[in-house]
Nucleic acid binder design. Structure first.
Lengths: 105, 105
DNA sequence: AATGAATACTTCGTGATATGATGTATTGCA
DNA sequence: TGCAATACATCATATCACGAAGTATTCATT
């Protein structure tokens, strides 16, 4: 997918990926993969950003000797998803404009 | 609208705005305004980018003593809109993922 | 035992890009 | 005379996705 189109979706995808149960970096990538591709560097950047914005909290845990950082969504994170859904109405309106102009031929 | 969401839409909006007839900067902003807001500096940056990518051509004309630069869409520009419509299917798939996770409560 | 793939997280540099600020210049209205 | 609207231009800045490179462990295969 076009990188510019991704920009508006990635943050919310990550929040959605942890909404129904805490998850960790590697798993989030695997879970999102069928819908949207993102690299590790991208994901960890996003996780840090969302943490700084208090949209998720982190807890470290050891699993089979390996470190895992579990991410938990906050109320602000849940609200962010709700906002996204609201904004989507505007996105659809913009999409319709493009289609309308395109089919005007 | 969230700036990140805009990023994937602006270029195509500008192309759509000139698809059915050449237009100029100031008019493009007014025409797009009901659907998506963008400032002059943003628009002129986009127009330059699209011109560099051969998605539109420019022609200067004088109108009431004032300079106007009319922008004309190229075949590549038309193709860009078609590509956008294809990519939109992926966007919808991502949106559905977010909704699905959100309503999982 | 050794090798490599998979798991798991981290940091850094880079390029793309939307936007505010600022500037120039003309037209038209109050 | 002054101000809003029209019309285009440039610059600096902040945000962000991503590749590259690194560290370290587990597990299956040879």
């Amino acid at each position: 997918m076009d990188i510019q189109l991704k920009r508006g979706l990635l943050d919310v995808c990550v929040l959605a990926a942890i909404k129904n149960g805490d998850s960790y970096g590697y798993k989030i990538i695997k879970d999102l993969n069928p819908y949207i591709e993102l690299s590790e560097s991208t994901l960890y950047t996003i996780l840090k950003r969302l943490e700084a914005a208090s949209m998720l909290t982190v807890r470290s845990a050891e699993h089979d000797g390996r470190l895992r950082k579990y991410y938990h969504i906050t109320d602000a994170g849940v609200r962010r998803i709700a906002e996204f859904k609201e904004e989507w109405k505007e996105v659809i309106s913009v999409y319709r404009f493009v289609i309308m102009e395109d089919q005007h031929e």
